[in-house]
Amino acid sequence: MFPESLIIDIATPVTAALENFVAQSGDGFKEASKHVLGVLLLLESALRGAPWWLVILVIAALVFALTRRFAPTVTLAAATFLLGVLGLWDAAMQTLALMIAALIVAVIVGLPLGVLLARHNRLRAFTLPVLDAMQTLPSFVYLVPALLLFGLGKVPALLATVIYALPPIIRLTDLGLRHADPDAVEAADAFGATPTQKLFWVELPLALPSILAGLNQACMMALSMVVVAAMIGARGLGEQVLLGIQRLDTGRALVAGLGIVVLAILLDRLTQATVRAVSAGSK
C-alpha cells in the first residue's frame, strides 16, 4: 500500500477552483456560447431545411468539380441518398452541421497555430505533448468542466469535437511548412519578399497538400466524437446510437452506426478529392 501521508489531494482544490470560476465568470461563457450556438443553428437549419435533392445535388456537384469523374460522383450521391432511405436524413444533417462547424473552428484556430509552431522550435517542443494529451485524454474529463461552463447542449459538444479535430490540423500545417521546398522559400527571400508575402505566396501554397491531409484526418477525428457529443446534447446520428443502446434496440443502433459510416465515407472522399485536386500533376 502506498503511504497515505505521501498522497497529494489535487481533486478537491481543482473542483473548488472550477466551481469558483464558474460562479464568477460562468455568465460570460454562457453569453459567448449563445453566439456560437446562433451560428451553429443557422448552419443546421440551412442543411435541415434545404430540400433533400438539393443537398445531394450540391454534394454531387462538389465531387464532380474536384474529381472530374462520374464514378465517384454517382457513388457519393448514392451514399447521401442512402442516408435518407435509412430514415436518418434529419439526424445526418444535424451531425453534418456539427462536423462542418467544428472543422471551420478547427481550421480558424489550427492554421495560425501550425504556422506559429513551424516558426518557433521551442513553442513546438512545448505544444506537441499538449496535442498528444488532447487526443489521449478521455473526452469525459474535459466535458464535465465544459458542461459546467456552457451548460448542456450543442456548444460543449462542438467544443469537444473541436478539441479532438484540432491536433491533426496543427500538426500537418507545421509539417507542411517545415517540408516546403527550401529553394522556393529562399527564392522568395532572394527576390525581396516580406515575411507575410513569403507566407502567403510561397509557404502556405507549398504546404497546402499537407494542410488538406490534416483536414481529412480532422474530419475522421471529429466523426469519432459523434456519440460522445450526443451524450451532452448534440442530437443527430449519435443520439440515434445512444437511444438504440439505452433501449437495447440493436437494429436502431446498427442503422445509426451505418449512417455515421456513410457520413465518414462522404467527408473522407470529399477531403481526399480536394487534396488530389490541389496536388494534381505533382507526381
Binding site: 521546398d181 522556393a184 529562399e186 527564392a187 496536388s279
Partner: peptide, 22 residues
Amino acid sequence: LRAFRRTSAAMVFQHFGLLPRR
C-alpha cells in the same frame, strides 16, 4: 536590403525554387 533584392540582384537556384502549381 529588401529594396536592393527587388531591384539590384536577382538569383537562380540549383533546384529552381519555383512554385510548382503556378
